[in-house]
Design a protein around this nucleic acid. Structure first.
Length: 466
RNA sequence: GCUCCGAUAGUGUAGUCCGGCCAAUCAUAUUGCCCUCUCACGGCAAUGACCUGGGUUCGAAUCCCAGUCGGAGCACCA
């Protein structure tokens, strides 16, 4: 099988579907899959030189390594050779009709006047195309299909056209005569031994179009599955490489890994495992209708993967400072993970005042349980330590909240899909390293993006999900 | 205009080929309860769907026809 991306930018979430599905088939049937960059349009779908590697990185993040990697722009001579062969069989003709004129004839079921040129003429004109003797738009090579076919989409389609703009890859920059996707991809699928093709409904006519070429060559067409488009909820930004690219250029997004961007690089930075995305994509199946992927499904899969191993920490967002009274313990020792006592406890110095999230500040005279510390009553602007046991919580009238010491806590900036939030975390957070995952208790999971910084003493975290 | 494709709960999916075991599966979501020093994890429960209309049949989610709705192609894009 093959994954045939157009290298015009890093992948968005929807792109994960192809490798997820063919990768799982590879495992199940001991199969083979390659990545083939179908980069045969240096102009309208101009390849981005950085995208080749970016896509391979995204693939690696998802947990896949392709068995082979090809670039269509390396294989032009192969396509030319097959075109020559096709011409000799009388299966293709050069055509200098402007696109609109041909379109009119085609829609009427009328052939192009060039259709019956003899192969020698066609061949010499095609060689001239290869030699770059025509300008863009002057000459194309068409596959001779069935000009009266009831489906107008299949009638005598273009196989090669002239493009004046050089290809961005240096190795391919001298070529001017470029194959269209249907020709290039059709030839390659056969030559690479592809047995099963999965592609979008936008290419649902491709198999029939390419079928004419396969018939000329006497090849057998692979099995094909078409699937619909994927929409992802939870994002304001349209899931389209070109849209995201524009938003980045305009400065609306900070980059491909901005948490608001529906890209794989963004999910990676937020600490979501590629595996969670892959599982969600496999869950979508291969239906040909359009589907909506709920991000909650990705989060649920991810939570399954990371919950057990992720240590707990406290983070208070926009904290209200409250002084403590009544001689509470000097240090709090909540567990590193509530389900794994053997991982030990954290050591949080308490000090003489704490920060609570505004919603957690109790009403006057009410009690509140600071996790890992004890019970306090809010009296005369002070949280008065009551020394009561945990039973008061079990009895049900005391809420349990997280907190941080006002003085010894460390500043944290957390970037989320809905914007940045600031807060302060327990001191241990300053010792975390980049890429570590934490669960901020009662807030959610986060990935440490930048450990504490000398300049501002601040730790930057990316919010994963609840 | 021509041509293709699809339609099961909020979302995704199984079942459709080879009609009965489907008063429809599983996951997620939502809600409630239990557990709990988290609104995490775990456990229990509830909510919730075969697009419409005909036909074939003893019997239709499943087969046939029509319609409706949705998607896609008819590019010198991929």
């Amino acid at each position: 099988m093959r994954c045939a991306p157009n290298p015009n930018g890093p992948w968005h979430v929807g792109h994960a579907r192809m490798p997820a599905v063919i990768g799982s088939y590879r495992e199940r049937y001991d199969g083979w899959f390659c990545v083939r960059f179908d980069d045969t349009d240096p102009e309208t779908k101009r390849p981005d030189l950085e995208a080749y590697d970016a896509i391979l990185e995204d693939l690696e993040y998802l947990g896949f390594e392709p068995d082979d990697v090809y670039r269509a722009s390396d294989r032009l001579e192969t396509y030319y050779d097959h075109a020559r062969e096709l011409i000799e069989m009388g299966g293709a003709y050069t055509c200098d009709l402007p696109g609109e004129e041909f379109s009119e004839l085609k829609n009427a079921g009328e052939p192009s006047p060039n259709r019956d040129k003899d192969p020698e003429t066609v061949l010499s004109e095609f060689e001239a195309m290869i030699d770059g003797e025509y300008e863009s738009g002057e000459m194309v090579l068409r596959v001779k299909t069935d000009i009266e076919h009831k489906n107008p989409a299949l009638r005598d389609w273009v196989a090669f056209r002239m493009i004046d703009t050089p290809h961005p890859r240096e190795e391919a920059s001298e070529y001017r005569c470029w194959p269209m996707l249907d020709f290039q991809s059709g030839i390659d699928d056969h030559l690479l031994g592809i047995t099963h093709i999965i592609r979008g409904i936008d290419l649902q006519d491709s198999a029939k179009r390419q079928g004419f070429v396969y018939d000329y060559f006497g090849w057998e067409y692979p099995e094909v599955v078409h699937w619909g488009h994927v929409q992802v909820d939870a994002y304001d930004v349209k899931m389209s490489t070109s849209t995201i690219s524009e938003l980045i250029a305009e400065g609306e997004l900070d980059g491909w890994d901005d948490p608001r961007a529906p890209t794989l690089k963004s999910l990676r930075r937020r600490g979501i495992r590629g595996e969670a995305i892959v599982e969600s994509m496999i869950g979508l199946g291969t239906s040909s209708s359009d589907v909506d992927l709920a991000m909650s499904a990705v989060y649920a899969n991810n939570r399954d993967l990371i919950d057990d191993e992720t240590d707990r920490r406290f983070l208070v967002r926009d904290g209200n400072q409250l002084p403590l009274g009544g001689s509470p313990p000097e240090e709090a020792n909540p567990p590193v993970h509530p389900d794994y006592e053997d991982r030990g406890v954290r050591e949080i110095p308490v000090g003489d005042s704490v920060l609570l999230e505004p919603e957690d500040v109790p009403d006057r005279e009410e009690r509140v349980w600071l996790k890992g510390l004890g019970c306090f009553q809010y009296t005369r602007d002070v949280l008065q330590y009551t020394g009561e046991e945990i039973d008061v919580v079990r009895e049900g009238d005391v809420d349990v909240v997280h907190w941080v010491p006002a003085r010894e806590s460390v500043p944290v900036q957390m970037r989320t899909m809905d914007g940045d939030v600031t807060g302060r975390a327990e001191p241990g957070v300053a010792d975390l390293e980049a890429d570590e995952l934490v669960q901020f208790v009662r807030v959610g999971f986060a990935r440490i993006d930048r450990p504490v910084d000398e300049a501002d003493g601040e730790t930057v975290a990316y919010y994963t999900h609840s």
